[in-house]
Structure formats: structure tokens, C-alpha cells
Design a protein around this nucleic acid. Structure first.
Length: 510
RNA sequence: GGGGCGGUAGCUCAGUCGGUUAGAGCAGAGCACUCAUAAUGCUUUGGUCGGGGGUUCAAGUCCCUCCCGCCCUACCA
């Protein structure tokens, strides 16, 4: 028997590198995870949603020095900016982990020790072409005319003592993993990239550094600091108190990442977990990038989208809706003001907002409470049928993070509702057959429960407003599925509604 | 160089194992309606499915080739 206590779900954003201000990209990742987490909670899952910051490395150390602050003090300050994404995007993350926290350092150390005692770490020399100005190693193939491919500066052959992780031991196991779990890496185009990368052969990876010290010391050899990814990836476990914490019930996770860091999540991370005998994540989903008005976001173009600014201007729910509806999750997309306004006006104000407004206005004006239910016609039954599978259909799309498809599906019933209303013409019935009018409005109102419930993870504030207008409260998708279509009480009062999604006046129209 | 993905209506994209007149949303045009946020509904314009060749009774869908765009090709994150 499954019950709510053993249905768990876990989703993570990457931990963000706080070298600049949070931008639309991180807000996007976090919002996608948030919608999924909210859906899961409403679907009866005990759900954990984790985000945080990666506070490791030389760049941070340098920035702090430049700011004239102790590194940790500097980080404490900048960290606040990243925590602000939570209120700005209205996120429901259950935790926010920082890699400089003791709880993380302890578990990252534990991870290292586990990998070591399982025989997957050894000490050797790392050698490569090092560019002093770039502070980066390059491989022979990367060099351009024997110089740094990034800056063109000279490189020198450097050998340094380093610990290595035996990633080569996992080549076959990883390929088997990808083959047996086609959904492990999504979307599938990314999956191909990873597979071909692994097929080209995996080398052991250097997992310690001696060139700086802002990081977690290698246990028993504090000349070395752990490589950033050993440190950073482990956050997904340290927030759960691996290996024995009570929160380990949430594992395994779904990891949502930007396409730039897919490889670390799809290759190094599962290899590490295999080496440490930890169950593997369910899925690693790589999403795309946003351009702005058709161009790459950059300060010089002046087209950088500030999450705070756009949510203040257009509304948080509106932005949440737009970024998940506009592009299919995994693809790149363009953030254009015109498209945004078009979506808000067409999808939210006209189709959805106006639908609730026209129905609830009639109810409030003519009845004042939930309308009485009478005999149903074939047309009613046909309309009601639209809601038979809507929840499971949306659930299926959410399972694979197909947010745009989930929304598309929800909008199908919104269109159907407008069509039904137009066909039934309750405003005519008001004059000829008030009993029938009440039934039609009742059918519509009952259907609004489903619409409200399904948009709630995407647009929580607006859904709550709808709940208030319907004088009804969503409990869980399961209850809605199992319950009767007609569940509202006639005695429930319905007040005059006010618009939830308003049109944005364009300049020509204003 | 090697590998991958994509090029379908003005825009963004769907098109499952090849099978009847190639679909949706938005944008445009016309009509209807007036409950509603100048909203909604209906109808409609619009595509030689990147070019060429081939396989097949039949190709957007398979094969070859060419053109165009994007991505990956390890230790900065």
C-alpha cells in the first residue's frame, strides 16, 4: 500500500556561483523546479526542493580581496542577493545550501573518504599547458598556435601533484546506464552528446588543486583543496544529511541544470555515486538559454533581463507563466517584450481571466451563490468529459518536465469552456429559462476547480485569487480525480469578482 | 577535422510504424454575439514541408547529395 508518507520527491537546481547578480537564467531554472515541486506537493508527494550557492574557488577569493573583505564576510553579503530570488520568483524551496556551511563541508569530506576507501582515488601528477593569466590548464588540442585559446597568452608546461578519480573505470557502466535508462539524460539531443562524449573514452579526472586554498581541504592532506565539482555536486546529498540523515528518504533526485554543466551532472556525478555506492539520480534535465529581444544578453547591448524588474512590471505569475509556456523545456528561447505582452493578453487576460470574469460576474449578479444544478443535457456531458483525464494528462507531462505541454493541455479546456459558454448562451437563458441558466453556470463553475488546481503550481498567487472567488479550496489532485465533478454547495456565496489577469495596454492602443 | 541536432503557414512550433484534402497557437481578414477584461465564438487568407536526386503503388516522414543555422568535442564555473 502506498500512502502519502512514503511517496517522496526531490528536485534540485544547480548551486549558483555568486560571482555576479542573479539573472534570468538562474531564475528560470529555479522557477521550473519550483513549479514541479509545487505540483508534486499538490499531488500528494512529500517533496523536497533544494537550491543554493557554490562558494568555492579562486574567483571568489579574489573578488573578496578586491572588495577588501574577509572571504567569508564577502560571501555572506553576496549570498543575500541569491536568496532574494526566492521572494522575487515566489519560490517554495525547502532549503538553501551553501558550500561554505559546516554541514556541507563535513559531508563532502565524507564523500571523499568514501571514494578513497572504495579505491577510486589515487595520487599522481597532473600535467598540462598552463596559462598564468587565464589561471587555466589547456589540453594540447585546445591550444591555438601554441598559445591560450582564450586570451592568446603564452602557456607553459606544468606538472603538479594531484589526486585523481578513477573515472575511466566507469565508461562501460555509464554507457549501460544511459542505454538502460533512456530518460536519465533529457532532452534526448543532449543525451546523444553525452553518449558520444563517453564513447570517445573517459580519462581519470584530477580532483584536487594546490594553486589556491578557498575550498574544502582534502582529508589528510591539506596542501590540497578538493576540485570544485567533487565539492559542488555533493551538495545534493549534503542537504539530505547523507548517508544516514532522515531526509535521505527524498533521494534519488531529479537534477535540473543549464546545458553548460550537463556533462558534470551526467558523467562525473553518476560515476562518483557509483563509486560511493549511492543510488543514482532519476534524471538530469538540461535546459536551454534565454536570449533577449533576439540577442544574447549582455551589458553592452543593454538587454539584460533583471528578474526583479520584470516581475515588478508584469507580475510574478505572468513571468512564471511566460518562461515556462513560451518554449519547450530544453530548447533555447527568446525573451521578447512583445511576445510577453502577447502571451499575457491572449492566454492569461483574454482566454483565462476573462473566462472566470464572465462566468462569475453572471453568477454574482444573478444568483449570488453557487448555482443550482438541474437536469444535464448531452452538451453538458460532452463538456464535462473534457475533465475526465485532464489531471492525469497534465501529470504525465509534468513527470517528464514538459511544462509547455502541460500548459498547452490546460489551455485546451480553457478554450473548451469559452466555447461551451458561447454555445449555451446563459445570458439568453436568463430571460427564458433561469433554471437552465443556473445549471450551465454551475457546470462552468465546477469545471473551474480543475483549471484553478492545475494552474496553481505555475501561478500560485493567481490560483489563490481564483480559489477565493470560487469560495473553494484545492486540496489535492487525487481528491479532485476521485471526487465527483459536482461537489460545490449551493449555499456557498459567490461575490462580484474582480479581474485576476488584466490586459496590458500596448502603446498603439493607449 | 570528428560527432549530434534542426531547416514545415508572417511568427513560434506539432506532425507517432511512410498511407486519404499537411495541423495548432499567435498575428491578418470577415461574420456572429453582448455575460465578460474593446473580451468570446464561428468562418477564412496563408505552406512547391531548405535545394536536387533516388527507393516505393504511396515520402514532410526512408536513402544519397548539396546549401544554411545551432550545439558538443573534459578538468574556469
Amino acid at each position: 500500500m502506498r500512502n502519502n508518507m512514503n511517496k517522496t520527491a526531490y528536485i534540485t537546481t544547480p548551486i549558483y556561483y555568486p560571482s555576479g547578480n542573479p539573472h534570468l537564467g538562474s531564475a528560470y531554472t529555479s522557477t521550473a523546479c519550483d513549479v514541479w515541486a509545487r505540483f508534486k506537493r499538490l499531488d500528494g508527494f512529500d517533496t523536497m526542493f533544494l537550491t543554493g550557492t557554490d562558494e568555492h574557488g579562486l574567483k571568489i577569493q579574489r573578488s573578496a580581496e578586491k572588495a577588501g573583505l574577509a572571504t567569508q564576510d564577502y560571501l555572506d553579503g553576496i549570498n543575500e542577493k541569491f536568496r532574494e530570488i526566492t521572494p522575487i520568483m515566489n519560490l517554495s524551496n525547502d532549503d538553501f545550501i551553501r558550500t561554505t556551511e559546516t554541514r556541507h563541508k563535513e559531508i563532502a569530506t565524507k564523500m571523499w573518504q568514501t571514494l578513497e576507501s572504495n579505491g577510486y582515488i589515487y595520487k599522481d601528477k597532473y600535467a598540462g599547458w598552463y596559462s598564468v593569466s587565464d589561471e587555466t590548464y589547456y589540453t594540447e588540442e585546445q591550444l591555438i598556435d601554441g598559445k591560450s585559446p582564450d586570451s592568446g597568452h603564452d602557456v607553459e608546461w606544468v606538472e603538479e601533484e594531484s589526486y585523481f578519480f578513477k573515472m575511466s573505470a566507469f565508461e562501460e557502466k555509464l554507457l549501460k546506464l544511459y542505454e538502460e535508462n533512456p530518460n536519465f539524460i533529457q532532452p534526448s539531443s543532449r543525451r546523444n552528446e553525452v553518449i558520444s562524449f563517453v564513447k570517445n573514452g573517459l580519462e581519470d579526472v584530477s580532483i584536487s588543486r594546490t594553486t589556491f586554498n578557498w575550498g574544502i581541504p582534502v582529508p589528510g592532506d591539506d596542501k590540497h583543496v578538493m576540485y570544485v565539482w567533487v565539492d559542488a555536486l555533493t551538495n545534493y546529498l549534503s542537504a539530505l544529511g547523507w548517508p544516514n540523515g532522515e531526509k535521505m528518504k527524498y533521494w534519488p533526485a531529479i537534477h535540473v541544470v543549464g546545458k553548460d554543466i550537463l556533462r558534470f551532472h551526467a558523467i562525473i556525478w553518476p560515476a562518483m555515486l557509483m563509486a560511493a555506492n549511492v543510488e543514482l539520480p532519476k534524471m538530469v534535465y538540461a535546459h536551454g538559454w534565454w536570449t533577449s529581444e533576439g540577442k544574447k544578453m549582455s551589458k553592452s547591448f543593454g538587454n539584460v533581463i533583471d528578474p526583479k524588474e520584470v516581475t515588478d512590471t508584469y507580475g510574478c505569475d505572468q513571468i512564471r507563466y511566460f518562461i515556462l509556456r513560451e518554449i519547450s523545456f530544453g530548447n533555447d528561447g527568446d525573451f521578447s517584450k512583445d511576445r510577453l505582452v502577447e502571451r499575457i493578453n491572449s492566454d492569461l487576460a483574454n482566454s483565462l481571466g476573462n473566462l472566470f470574469q464572465r462566468v462569475l460576474s453572471m453568477v454574482a449578479k444573478n444568483i449570488g451563490h453557487v448555482p443550482a444544478l438541474n437536469e444535464l443535457t448531452d452538451a453538458d456531458h460532452e463538456y464535462i468529459k473534457h475533465f475526465d483525464t485532464i489531471i492525469s494528462d497534465v501529470r504525465n507531462e509534468m513527470e517528464t518536465l514538459q511544462f509547455h505541454k502541460a500548459l498547452e493541455r490546460i489551455w485546451q479546456v480553457i478554450y473548451a469552456a469559452n466555447q461551451y459558454m458561447d454555445a449555451m448562451e446563459p445570458w439568453q437563458l436568463r430571460k427564458t429559462d433561469e433554471v437552465r441558466m443556473q445549471t450551465v453556470l454551475r457546470v462552468l463553475m465546477e469545471s473551474f476547480k480543475y483549471i484553478t488546481a492545475l494552474i496553481k503550481p505555475f501561478m500560485p498567487e493567481s490560483a489563490e485569487k481564483f480559489e477565493g472567488q470560487l469560495n473553494w479550496q484545492m486540496t489535492s489532485y487525487e481528491n479532485l480525480e476521485k471526487g465527483e465533478f459536482f461537489s460545490m454547495e449551493e449555499t456557498t456565496e459567490i461575490a462580484k469578482p474582480s479581474g485576476v489577469f488584466m490586459r496590458i495596454q500596448t502603446e498603439e492602443a493607449a
